[in-house]
Design a protein around this nucleic acid. Structure first.
Length: 489
RNA sequence: GCCGGUAUCGUCUAGUGGCCUAGGACGCCGCCCUCUCACGGCGGAAACCGGGGUUCGACUCCCCGUACCGGUACCA
């Protein structure tokens, strides 16, 4: 039977980087084994239920290239894929356990429970449910019911013995049943709790492998008891280590960007996010670090997933993003950068990628790490500089004879036989020789005059993309600037 | 508190008893390339949590401790 795995997030509206890693592993496992990935939204907590948020999350998965097989927006034979729409199944399952005596009604109120729990902790005892409703007689139950109490349903958990989780990543992990209490599977409002709903749904959806975050490992014995009570063999469990913030705490919003959507807005490529996140807790066993999705599918295996929590590091992700950026054709990078170019006013609303844009992007491709950096990097191709870099002015505009050299450069721009990088370079070097200066003494002032900066692409290649008359104007303006300042000094 | 897990450079990791003088990558520093920046190349600093065992031999196996993470809800 082909494996079936699932990703079951609560709908928060954004995809946490740790969750992204979890889905990715599920997806890689599914694709590498010929299995299917199900997306199920766990929205049983009514305060968190928002269908629209779930669709946003689904779109983010698709954007990442995680093309799940069943779930919201896709449908499938085991729907509905919103847990809130499966409450009848949960209730039916609970009824069955009740009828079979494997579960019982508990009439304690949340307030009473909290009180007792507090008392237990104070007394140094384990804060477990004491099982007082376990042996209620029918009359007692009726009396409680008559008093207006709405019961919750608890699972009868064996009081002795050991439950072992056979984890594909952590190995066999043993838990004493005595440490568990009879936990609630159905709340008094009739809604199933997580440990119950998710098992019932996993059974209904024929899930064979549960690959999820390590934080669920401790709850797995409870779920195994639910499987047993329901008479179903548990699936294979595989818990993947947590992703932590740089301070080793749980990654949260106060650590800056933690959602895939935020990285998307910051100009990260889906390929890079996938690649980086794959390396968090998984490694191929050799020195390779840059992978495409197809390569990951080919290489991935649960056996190579580590057991150690990983601290997430933006700098490395930036580097990986730069790697992927450079592997893309410049025209494609330009296309993807369009939204940022529009925002910067460098591209019109309906603008398409043209040759000049592509050439400009090609020149800065090795100088940027994200799409968001592109507008600033190529701005001077479209607009004359409004100011000159201050340190640059001191260095290249303040020297003796700076104005004359700029004038010489302007003449080259006017007279060079063809406006190509080769021709311009030849003219510059010849002129430098004639003047008896190093080529750099012409090159740097020109760059500052044309781009306003001291850093950037090779001058001659850059000039080629600036219209000749525009280059002449910028050089003239720089010459005037230098003369004005020299006069004042 | 109790239960569970984990522990290799700052970070991601390789390593499954001798191949380890502990390898790679990001970041950092230096040099080279060079019209600047970047890319690239070369080099450097940087780690086996502590203590006991087991063994001819432990980063690797066992125990204890410590630290960190997770669970312990009518949250998921």
């Amino acid at each position: 039977m082909a494996p079936r795995v699932r990703f079951a997030p609560s709908p928060s509206g954004y995809l946490h980087i740790g969750s992204a890693r979890t889905v990715l592993f599920n997806y890689l496992f599914a694709r590498s084994t010929g299995g299917a990935l199900v997306l199920r939204i766990e929205d049983t907590d009514p305060s968190r239920s928002k269908e629209e948020l779930a669709y946003q999350m689904a779109d983010t998965l698709l954007w990442l290239g995680i093309d799940y097989d069943e779930g919201p927006r896709k449908g499938g034979p085991y729907g509905p894929y919103f847990q809130s729409q499966r409450t009848e199944r949960h209730r039916a399952a609970a009824e069955r356990l009740l009828a079979e005596g494997k579960a019982y009604r508990c009439y304690c109120t949340p307030e009473e429970l909290a009180e007792r729990r507090e008392a237990a902790v104070l007394a140094g005892r384990a804060p477990r449910y004491d099982g007082r409703c376990r042996t209620l007689t029918a009359e007692e139950a009726r009396a409680l019911e008559a008093a207006g109490r709405r019961p919750a349903v608890r699972l009868r958990v064996p009081e002795e013995g050991v439950t072992v989780v056979h984890d594909a990543i952590y190995g066999d992990v043993e838990f004493d049943n005595a440490a568990l209490d009879d936990f609630i599977i159905l709340r008094s409002d009739g809604m199933a709790t997580y440990n119950f709903a998710s098992v019932v749904d996993d059974i209904d959806m024929r899930i064979t492998h549960v690959i999820r975050a390590e934080e669920h490992l401790s709850n797995t014995p409870k779920q195994i008891h639910v499987y047993r009570a329901l008479g179903v063999d548990p699936p294979v469990f595989a818990h993947v280590p947590m992703v932590l913030a740089p301070d080793r705490s749980k990654l949260s919003k106060r650590h800056g960007a933690v959602a895939v959507e935020e990285f998307r807005e910051k100009g990260y490529l889906p390929e890079a996010i996938v690649n980086y996140v794959a390396l968090l807790g998984w490694s191929p066993g050799d020195d390779r670090e840059i992978f495409t999705m197809d390569e990951l599918i080919r290489e991935f295996s649960l056996e190579r997933v580590s057991r150690t929590a990983a601290v997430y590091d933006v700098q490395k992700m930036e580097w990986i993003n730069a790697q992927h950026l450079r592997r893309l054709p410049p025209a494609e990078v330009a296309r993807r950068a369009l939204p940022w170019l529009r925002k910067a006013g460098l591209a019109a609303e309906g603008a398409q990628v043209d040759q000049r844009l592509t050439a400009a992007v090609a020149l800065v491709l090795e100088r940027v790490r994200t799409l968001a950096e592109i507008p600033a990097a190529i701005e001077f191709f479209f607009r004359a500089p409004e100011t000159y870099d201050e340190a640059g002015v001191r260095k290249h505009f303040a020297a003796e004879g700076a104005a004359e050299r700029l004038a010489a450069c302007r003449r080259i721009a006017e007279e060079v036989p063809s406006w190509t990088a080769e021709a311009i370079e030849a003219a510059y070097r010849a002129e430098a020789e004639r003047l008896g200066v190093r080529p750099a003494e012409l090159i740097h002032p020109t760059r500052l005059a044309v781009t306003g900066r001291t850093v950037g692409p090779s001058l001659f290649h850059l000039l080629e993309l600036v219209p000749r008359d525009e280059a002449v104007r910028r050089l003239e303006r720089a010459e005037a600037f230098v003369r004005a300042h020299a006069a004042r000094a």
